[in-house]
């Protein structure tokens, strides 16, 4: 079971169909069960019953999730793979003490691989929609960068990944790889 977390400003917002359903659709095609929850309704049972967690992105103007960083401290406690997409990567960075930095990118960009990993092993051309990225601290290794900012990170001792671009748009295999190869 994959837990897919909606980080949008409110439950069942217009962003749900834009940032959550495309992820669910990719997970569904792998034949893996999933459970979608808005972040305000996450409970311990959701985390306990899931093998992995995907934190979805939000609209460019939606920073509501940043006001709720403390509600994601469970990321430090559960020993399960997590993939944070855009807003999700920002939260992962913040929860583990990294710095949020202003870095706006909108549209397709070239992404340079820094370290081959279970999610991807080549340079990428990917869709961006973010105002911030993360300046990772020593807990993380940098997997990929653009000419502006860090694009992908992995926790050094946990199976916790973050990508600031949106793999659901042109790099769907990254989500499939997380579902099938990360454990």
């Amino acid at each position: 079971m994959i837990l897919i977390v909606d980080l949008s400003y409110k439950k069942n917002s217009l962003s749900f169909e834009e940032f959550v359903l495309p992820i669910a659709s990719i997970v569904e095609k792998t034949g893996t069960d999933f459970n979608i929850k808005h972040f305000t309704e996450l409970c311990e049972e959701d985390l306990r019953s899931s093998e992995k967690v995907i934190l979805c992105g939000t609209a460019l103007k939606d920073d509501e999730f940043l006001k709720h960083e403390e509600e994601f401290s469970w990321m430090k406690k559960i020993n399960k793979p997590i993939l944070g997409i855009c807003a999700g990567m920002q939260l992962i960075g913040l929860v583990f003490g990294s710095e949020l930095i202003e870095a706006k990118e909108i549209g397709m960009k070239e992404i340079k691989l820094k370290k081959p990993n279970k999610l991807f092993s080549t340079d990428l051309y990917a869709y961006e929609l973010h105002k911030y990225s993360i300046k990772p601290n020593e807990d993380f290794e940098i997997l990929a960068v653009s000419d502006l900012c860090v694009q992908a990170i992995k926790h050094r001792s946990k199976e916790i990944y973050g990508v600031i671009f949106h793999p659901e748009v042109r790099q769907r295999q990254i989500i499939v790889n997380f579902v099938e190869k990360v454990s």
């Binding site: 962003s15 169909e17 359903l21 460019l60 103007k61 748009v169």
Partner: peptide, 9 residues
């Protein structure tokens, strides 16, 4: 704000 409710559908 910008919303695309059919995105990737």
């Amino acid at each position: 704000w910008c919303f695309n409710p059919l995105w990737q559908k």
